[in-house]
C-alpha cells in the first residue's frame, strides 16, 4: 500500500505542466506560445495584479501512444484556472487549428472555476468562443476529451464546456457542475447548500457521483499514469457520430427526465439510492475499481 502510494503521482496536486509531462509520450511535448514568447494579461496589470507568462494555460502539440494529439492544460493554481482574454484565445486557437489539421484528438485538461471575473466581458466572450470551437472540432471529426481531476474541478462556463466535449475522464477528486458551492450558498443561503460541508460537495459534484450518473465516460484513480492509460484506452476504441441538433435535443430530454426524477432530493445519497445502489452510504468509501464494478451492476 505504502509502496503503491509512493509510486503514484497525484494529478490533483500536480501543476498543469507536470500533468502534461506525465500524460504525453516522453519527449513529444511541443508548446505553442511558450512563456518566454508570450505576455501576461494586460487586464490584470490594469487592476494592479501580477499576471502569469502563459496566462494560466498551456497549449501544445504532442503524442499519446505515438498518435499525434493536441493538448490544452489549465493551471488551477493561477487565479483558479479562470478564463481571461488571452487564456481563452489560446484555447480557441488550438481547437480551431485542430479542426483544420485533424489530430487524433484534443486532450483538454480542465481545471477551472469558469470566467475570470476581472476580465468580465472578454472572459465571457472567450467562454462562448471555446464552446463553439469545441463543437466545430468535433464536427470536423476530431474528438475532444476532457480530463477533470484538478483542485478547481470544472465549474461555471468551463462546466458547460466540459459537457460539450466528446467525453469526460474524471477522478474521484475531480468535480463537475455549473454554479460552484460557494456561489449557491451566497445566492440561495446555507439551508440550500452548505459549501463548508466538503463531503456533501463531493457527494453532489464529485467524480464518483458524476460517473454513477453517467455524466462522465470513465472514472480513473488520482494518478497521472491512470489518466494517461485511461485517455489512451479511450481513444483506441473511440468513435462518435457528428454532433447534431437531434443529439442535443436527446441530451436535453435526458436532463429534463433527470430533473423530474431527482429535483426534490438534497443529497447524492438519495440519488444513488434511487439509481438502485443498495448501500448508498458506502459509496464515498469505495475505491475506484469497486465503484466501477458497482456502476456496471446497476439496473439501466
Amino acid at each position: 500500500m505504502i509502496a503503491s502510494l509512493a509510486a503514484r503521482h497525484s494529478w490533483f496536486e500536480a501543476t498543469a505542466r507536470a500533468r502534461l509531462a506525465g500524460l504525453l509520450d516522453p519527449g513529444s511535448f511541443s508548446e505553442i506560445l511558450p512563456p518566454a514568447e508570450s505576455n501576461p494579461s494586460p487586464h490584470l496589470a490594469l487592476l494592479d495584479l501580477p499576471g502569469a507568462f502563459d496566462d494560466g494555460v498551456v497549449v501544445c502539440y504532442g503524442q499519446l501512444g505515438k498518435r499525434p494529439i493536441f493538448a490544452i492544460a489549465q493551471e488551477g493554481q493561477f487565479m483558479g484556472g479562470a478564463v481571461g482574454e488571452i487564456h481563452g484565445a489560446k484555447i480557441v486557437g488550438m481547437l480551431r487549428r485542430a479542426a483544420q489539421e485533424k489530430p487524433a484528438a484534443v486532450l483538454f485538461l480542465i481545471d477551472s472555476g469558469g470566467v475570470r471575473l476581472h476580465e468580465a466581458n472578454a472572459g465571457l466572450i472567450a467562454i462562448s468562443e471555446i464552446m463553439r470551437a469545441v463543437l466545430d472540432a468535433r464536427a470536423a471529426g476530431v474528438p475532444v476529451i476532457a480530463l477533470v481531476g484538478g483542485s478547481c474541478g470544472a465549474f461555471g462556463g468551463m462546466g458547460i464546456v466540459a459537457k460539450l466535449c466528446s467525453a469526460i475522464v474524471i477522478s474521484e477528486e475531480g468535480r463537475l457542475a455549473l454554479s460552484g458551492p460557494e456561489v449557491i450558498e451566497t445566492v440561495a443561503g446555507v439551508e440550500e447548500f452548505d459549501s463548508k460541508d466538503r463531503a456533501l460537495v463531493w457527494r453532489v459534484t464529485g467524480g464518483k457521483h458524476r460517473y454513477l450518473m453517467g455524466d462522465c465516460a470513465m472514472l480513473v484513480e488520482d494518478d497521472i499514469a491512470a489518466f494517461r492509460s485511461g485517455a489512451t484506452e479511450f481513444l483506441a476504441g473511440w468513435s462518435e457520430p457528428v454532433p447534431s441538433v437531434a443529439h442535443l435535443r436527446a441530451g436535453q430530454q435526458t436532463l429534463e427526465n433527470r430533473l423530474a426524477a431527482y429535483a426534490s432530493y438534497r443529497d447524492g445519497l438519495q440519488v444513488w439510492a434511487a439509481l438502485g445502489v443498495a448501500e448508498p452510504e458506502s459509496v464515498p468509501l469505495l475505491d475506484r475499481d469497486a465503484l466501477v464494478a458497482l456502476k456496471e451492476g446497476l439496473p439501466t
Partner: peptide, 18 residues
C-alpha cells in the same frame, strides 16, 4: 534556455530564466 518553474499562485511565484 529559457527555463521556467513555479506558478503564480497564493504564496508562490513563477521564475523565467533566460
Amino acid at each position: 534556455d529559457p527555463a521556467l518553474c513555479g506558478v503564480v499562485g497564493s504564496g508562490n511565484l513563477e521564475i523565467l530564466v533566460k
